Computed example of a mutant assay.
Amino acid sequence: MHLAVSLDIASVTGRAGLTLAEIAGFVRKLETAGVDMVVISDSWPSGEPSASPFEATTLIAALATVTAKIGLVASASTLMHQPYNLARRFASLDIISHGRVGWNATLRQNPREAANFGRPEGFSDDDFRRRAEEYIGIVQGLWQGWDADALLFDKAGGRFHDPDKMHVLDHKGEFFSVRGPLNIARSPQGTPVLVMSSLAEAEFDFAARVADVILVDAVSPADAKAACDDLKRRAVTAGREPRAFKTLATLQAGPELGTDHLDHWFAGQGCDGLNLALPADLSALDDFADRILPDLRRRDPARSAHAGARLRDHLGLGAGGEK
């Protein structure tokens, strides 16, 4: 069973004054305990202003230099970035981290975000959904623009790359026009891991077709099992192997959380693991690290040994971009 921890840096930093050193220390504790990945968010879904000094992708670049195994996933908005720039940024982060990076693509619309990027009227829910789906498809296509052996660096022969192994995306869609390819080497994982979260039921079919990891909101193990089973069925209907992606049930980690509670969730739900969303409080983070993580290590010593060096290895996923 896989284990992730979600950390909202905007609300955490604004309320508790976390420093980079404190965040890094906490993430290193997660790594030692064998947590598969940490998911960093830097914006509030409500759209309220944030006091965070950190942008999520910049923060995981810093965390990559002080960790060696844990997966580093950053939320990044489809409104705040052009798809080419975002695809390039995450491919670069994956190189920096030696293959440990993922993008959390949240399809929930922030009510204030569009006004900061030339759309004061925002988008209708349907337009936002179609735009986000097109955007995610472009990013995935750009990540696959270079075959693994496309770059030759052949000085003697004067060949930088094999043209037959470079693929121009040439996307022309409803919302975007992007030629490609990226001007950066292929990701060490094939493609960074695509995580999707905050999904409405209307988005389940799309997520089941394209995501590597889906974070499922649930209030009970039974709800989690129903949602995860539904996503796997939708994947099969779309012609995809249900093992091709992982489903993690998101559990709000309050003060009542203990290993007995976690055991209940692990035993009673049909997802591939849990995503623990921690409250925005420094004392709660310390409590989680000092009380829950040691219990997890004692109960499951093998958890502290990450499988392989890359995030896809930790999660048992194939190389990104495989047909």
Rank of each mutant, 00 (worst) to 15 (best):
V219R: 09
G270D: 11
S11V: 14
A284P: 09
G25I: 02
E121F: 02
M166D: 08
P111M: 10
T259C: 05
H167P: 05
T13I: 07
T65Y: 04
D281A: 15
P163T: 04
A208W: 01
W265M: 01
H314V: 00
A253R: 08
A68F: 10
D217M: 11
T58M: 15
V38Q: 04
A150I: 00
H264I: 06
G137E: 15
K225M: 07
I70Q: 06
S52I: 03
R112E: 12
G308T: 01
W265L: 01
A200P: 01
K29I: 00
Q269A: 11
C228S: 13
V12D: 07
A200T: 12
G173K: 05
S41R: 13
H314F: 00
L152D: 07
F90A: 05
L278C: 03
A208N: 01
L152W: 11
S177E: 15
S43V: 13
A76Q: 14
T78K: 03
L7M: 02
Q252S: 13
M37A: 15
K323N: 12
F153V: 12
Q109D: 14
A148G: 06
R303H: 07
D205L: 11
F123V: 01
A150K: 06
A56T: 06
K246N: 09
R15Y: 13
Q144H: 11
N183E: 14
G308K: 03
L257I: 13
F204I: 02
N116T: 04
T106S: 15
K246M: 10
G273A: 04
T13E: 15
V195F: 15
F153Q: 12
G321R: 03
L199V: 08
E201P: 12
V195A: 03
D272T: 00
A218I: 08
A105L: 13
R310S: 12
W265I: 05
K225Y: 05
T259M: 13
E322N: 14
